[in-house]
Design a protein around this nucleic acid. Sequence first.
DNA 1: TCCGTGACGCGAT
DNA 2: CATCGCGCCACGG
Length: 107
Amino acid sequence: MRIRIEAAIRRIPQGKVSTYGAVARAAGLPGAARQVAKVLHRGFGLPWQRVLGAGGEIKLRGDSAIEQRLRLEAEGVRFRGLKVDMKQCEWKFGRRTSDTGPRNLRP
DNA sequence: TCCGTGACGCGAT
DNA sequence: CATCGCGCCACGG
């Protein structure tokens, strides 16, 4: 299970973000949002900053939250107030085989 | 086995 | 918006 979740997380490209719930579904584990959070908390080498709560909200507290925001802005993710502008930055997981989703956004 | 715990999600107020 | 409540789920005590 951990592997499936990690794989899904790794599919999120730089400059894009996703949510715990979406990652869980992409991993074939609908409803396992909390497990996604755990994997992120313990796993290493994962682009953890690209996973947010529903609506593009950062769910971390204190310094971690600040770091996540800085990391995201550093890779071009735009914020609208305290949330990420999902309308523009959310990564849509495609169904296997050549996933054709909106990609390459770096003007 | 029961119970508390979360980097959760969503609808209702 | 802010809060609340309830559903969800793997884990550890």
